[in-house]
Design a binder for these strands. Structure first.
Lengths: 247, 247
DNA sequence: CTAAAAAGTTAGCCATATCTAATTCTGCGT
DNA sequence: ACGCAGAATTAGATATGGCTAACTTTTTAG
């Protein structure tokens, strides 16, 4: 019986991501471009994953994850986002680089280590991009909020999430200060998907509609609940308790 | 031209380790048992590594690393030991588990991350077992000291290094408190490779000769230079500087 | 409704890294 | 000096994952 290799993990994660964002049913072509492999590679891997009962698949029919497949996918996503947060908070890895590093580390996280990371971070709920970290049981908090591009002139909001799909764009957004937790105000919004003029931390920036829609915000009445813990690197870490002998 | 895969890294590291401990020239059989693969696997990989100019090899003649091969091997060893120290100091991973975790992490450490790890640890020179961490240029400090089993009755010493080859034994040594930095006194040494009675942190233990020779110690006159920085987990970490935009 | 475009699949191949079984060296002991 | 045991190599097979080229099915547009 085939085992869960790194390739298997990559496929499951990609399929999960696509079905999470797009529809339930995922096409071979989408998987191929997500993973940057050829379509035939996807077909053959998908047939293998079917025999492993990790997904449902019929010829020409697209794929959906089975519960077992989703469970593994969410484990990987959990690993990925835990590493992202850890690298950002404890090692000061720049936000734009965090995804790439976690991409490799996600496959290398034992249960023991996962436990230590989690504790060290204080049972975190969100990664530094604002995406929710799946719980160990596979529960995933919904991303609440609306795209920045939807806001009307005069609105105040707090950034909840910044897409990390494109490192270049992310780098730019970060340079504007548009990262999770930031307070912003829409000073002006040009009509017809036009650019927004936003005020961030005292400075004014003009942001194109495409870029603005990578940013998810939630409403910010005068004082916002800071329940979600302000994110940011450089917070004094606590180390895991030194332990003596253990069983 | 073949690339440096994880398997290549594993072979180079194994060969380096064997030639470091045994002689310059390493046999196919030793590599096979070090990596727990069959001899034919080693032969074929070694032929490949030769074409990559990472080692010297003649049929039936054993192998030696070329400078290029050694450089890569030392990079991996550096990664391994940096991760070991980081996990031990900052995440509280128990000493007996640190090697296994690092075994997987060593292949996943970008230059950027290596830099951050190094800085976070304050340019460390030794891993938590007491082994020296190769410098980025490939320089490796010698392990100074003698085996604990060599000490005579009445001698005082400080543990410099504890072998991590056997996790079971290591776990036991750790449970005795026999870890790098510990002060010990030999209360009695039985003749003919007999067991030692040692005093460690106020408690007395009897240690067999085999076990005792996994421990390397250096002399401990009344006050020892604590130049080598006392090792131990739970030291307050400092996080990498948050950085803004960067080139 | 049908033909072309797009998407997906099959066929066949390559590279990596492993293994077992069979064969060939090497070097040691008598 | 010679045979033999042990080490190493060759031969040949397997598993994983990826690719291109050619073919089939589905979808879409006129």
């Amino acid at each position: 019986m085939p085992s869960v290799t790194q390739a298997v993990e990559d496929y499951l994660k990609a399929i999960w991501r696509l079905s999470h964002e797009g529809g339930e049913r995922v096409s071979v072509g989408d998987i191929a471009s997500e993973l940057k492999v050829s379509a035939p590679s996807v077909t053959s891997m998908v047939r293998k994953l079917k025999t492993m009962r990790l997904l449902n698949y019929e010829r020409y029919g697209g794929v959906t994850l089975t519960p077992r497949g989703r469970k593994i996918a969410l484990e990987i996503v959990r690993h990925h986002r835990l590493w992202e947060l850890y690298l950002y908070m404890r090692l000061g890895v720049p936000l734009e680089l965090v995804d790439g590093e976690a991409e490799r580390l996600e496959h290398v996280l034992s249960d023991d280590m996962e436990e230590l990371l989690t504790r060290n971070l204080g049972d975190p709920t969100h990664d530094p991009h604002g995406d929710p970290i799946p719980s160990k049981t596979g529960a995933l908090a919904p991303v609440e909020g609306i795209a920045l591009g939807q806001l009307e002139t005069g609105t105040h909001a707090i950034v909840a999430r910044v897409s990390d799909r494109n490192p270049e764009k992310l780098r730019y957004l970060v340079s504007l200060g548009l990262l999770p937790g930031a307070r912003i105000e829409v000073e002006e919004k040009a009509p017809f998907r036009g650019p927004l003029t936003v005020r961030i931390g005292g400075r004014r920036h003009v942001v194109g509609a495409d870029l603005a829609n990578l940013v998810i915000v939630r409403g910010a009445p005068a004082a916002s609940r800071s329940k979600g813990a302000r994110l940011g690197p450089g917070v004094p870490p606590r180390s895991g308790k030194p332990r003596g002998k253990r069983r």
